[in-house]
Amino acid sequence: MKSEILAYNPAQEVDMAKQEKGRIPTYLSSEELALLFSGMPASDYYIRNKCMLMLMGLAGLRVVEVHNLNISDIIRNQEDPGIEVTGKGNKARYIPLPVPLYEMLLDYERIYRPIPKPNHSNAFFLSKRGVRISRRRIQEVTENAFDFLKQQPGYQYLEQKKLTAHKLRHTFGTGMVRDGTDLVTIQQLMGHTNLNTTQIYTHVSNEQKQKAMRNKDVSRFFSD
């Protein structure tokens, strides 16, 4: 990149071997995430782009996993809708999907997916040329959505955050922990080999600390 040979860093989405102690991953609040999805720029590829961002933010997919998603990976079971994702080490994992997201994927496939070129017929997300969408394009779509979010009244503080496509995955992991999902389940959903990687999402915000301490009844310790 420094030599201007590459347009992006191919190692950007690679997890570090060791996590820095005390490092809190950057993530979006549920309100920020909702505004990100609802305020995505209008285009001919609005549904495709929204599906891609939602798979990262609501199902924890990596950019490369969105890129690699195939038509054959869609689990077409009305009682248990979901997808099969091929992650690191070529390991496959099953991810059940919220019904509205699953139905949006089917709408994209049925109505908005371009006609694929012969060698790309199984690729789920396609570019306007009918070829598998590139990882860089997925990142650009996400960056454009973040730029729109940062421009909204009251959200300018997000300029101070380094927001990338991978941060949507962090947002998913953090949200699952806060919803009370156990770490082993989150590990399986996110495709982490090591549970230590999943534990970075157990960080606690100042708001959570305040709620826990302000609601604590200590009056009996101060009675005369």
Rank of each mutant, 00 (worst) to 15 (best):
M1H: 03
N68M: 02
M176Y: 00
G87N: 13
P116C: 05
R93S: 01
F146M: 10
K167A: 12
G60A: 07
T193K: 15
I47W: 04
T197I: 08
N90A: 14
F146Q: 13
K128S: 12
M54P: 03
N194W: 03
V14S: 13
H170I: 03
M52T: 07
K211E: 14
D147V: 13
L105S: 04
S43P: 09
Y46N: 01
V64W: 00
I24F: 01
I71Y: 02
I47C: 09
M190W: 05
I24Q: 13
Q187A: 01
F125Q: 03
L158D: 12
D73E: 02
D224E: 14
D182H: 13
P114T: 03
T174Q: 15
I95Q: 06
K18H: 09
T171E: 08
P98I: 03
R23V: 08
M54K: 14
R23N: 11
L168A: 11
T26E: 11
K18L: 12
H192T: 05
L106A: 01
A92C: 08
P118I: 10
I75P: 00
A34V: 02
P98V: 00
Y102M: 04
L183N: 07
H67R: 06
H120S: 12
P100W: 02
D73Q: 06
R129L: 07
I83S: 01
H166K: 15
Q151G: 14
V85T: 06
S29C: 10
L101Y: 04
N194M: 04
T26V: 14
E20I: 00
T164M: 08
G82N: 01
L195V: 15
N122T: 04
L106H: 01
H170R: 02
A92I: 13
P41H: 11
M56G: 01
V14A: 06
I186Q: 09
A34N: 12
P41R: 10
Y45L: 06
Y112C: 02
V66G: 06
P10C: 06
N206R: 12
L126S: 05
A165I: 00
K21L: 12
S223P: 00
D73M: 02
H203W: 00
L168I: 07
E79V: 04
K211A: 11
K117E: 12
Q208W: 01
G130I: 03
K167T: 09
N144G: 01
M213S: 06
I200P: 06
E32W: 00
K162A: 14
R76T: 04
G22L: 09
N215C: 11
V177A: 08
F124S: 01
G89L: 05
M1C: 04
G175T: 08
Q188H: 10
